[in-house]
Amino acid sequence: MNKSTINLPENTIFEVLVTTTNNQKPHTKPFGMKIQDKQVVLTLFPNKTLNNIKNNKEFLIQFTLNPLIYTKASLNKLTSKDYQNNNILKEATVILRLKVNKIIEQKNNDKYGENIITTIFSTVTDIKQENIQVPAINRATTKIIELLVDYTRYNYMNSNQKTSYINKIIESENIIRKTGNKNHNKSLNLIKKELNIED
């Protein structure tokens, strides 16, 4: 990887893929990250990604415009075929290697109940660019990412919230099918299959 700086506006949350390792095996999940005081900031609830970061103090952040990779990562469907060497995703366009500077834990109380949230402050040590793509905004991608963000909280939802979420998926389907491509369609189908939503 080549050393560089990341050119993103501060205090803006971007959906990214965070790759950590456990016994040398890659574990990738989508999360929101932001730049704050030239540091990369992640805020995580207790999960495997957080445990891996605490244990290793290093991780990757990967960017891609492919919604299917985000979907497969969310649903634990990524396989070794999705990666190249060094735990880099084949579909990644920019890969950041980060080193943890500071970890802060605090209690959080939201509509899903009381949780511990952990904020991780990290520094970019290397950056690599591959698979150069035009950074175009697509409505179907935006819808898929929004559904995946909600999906991460699905197990904490009550029955009314789950019903509302499923309705949101159904309502989003027309836009996704109309404005997306085969990867958007595969993403939507995977989400629907995971939640047993019939056509």
Rank of each mutant, 00 (worst) to 15 (best):
I104Y: 06
V134K: 12
F121W: 15
G113I: 08
Q133F: 10
V94P: 05
K90N: 11
N85P: 04
Q161I: 01
P67G: 00
L89Q: 10
V100D: 10
L96G: 06
I169N: 14
N108S: 12
S74A: 14
I88L: 10
L89S: 12
S80T: 15
I166N: 10
T79I: 10
N66F: 02
K99P: 05
I117N: 12
Y112A: 12
I169A: 02
Y112D: 13
F63Y: 11
N76L: 10
L78R: 01
S74V: 07
I117C: 06
I103K: 12
T118C: 01
I95T: 15
N86F: 06
E114V: 08
N138D: 13
T125Y: 09
N167D: 14
L89R: 14
N167A: 06
I169P: 14
S122L: 02
I116F: 08
I117F: 10
E58D: 05
K128P: 06
K168E: 00
K72F: 06
L147I: 00
E91L: 03
G113W: 07
N56L: 03
I103N: 11
L75Y: 04
T93Y: 11
R139S: 14
I69Q: 00
D126V: 04
L96F: 09
K107T: 12
N158V: 00
N85I: 07
I103A: 06
L89H: 11
T123S: 14
K99A: 01
Q106G: 04
I166R: 11
A140P: 04
V124A: 07
I127R: 02
N158W: 01
A92C: 03
N55S: 08
K99I: 00
I127K: 06
Q161R: 05
S80A: 15
K128W: 11
N138F: 14
K162V: 00
T123P: 09
E114G: 08
A73Q: 10
N76P: 03
R97Q: 13
I137D: 13
I117V: 15
Q84E: 15
Y70P: 04
G113V: 08
I103E: 12
K162F: 02
L65Q: 05
T119I: 01
L78V: 04
F59E: 07
V149R: 12
L68Y: 05
Q161C: 02
N155T: 07
D82W: 12
K99G: 03
A136K: 09
I145P: 00
I169L: 03
S159H: 04
T141W: 00
V100S: 06
N56E: 09
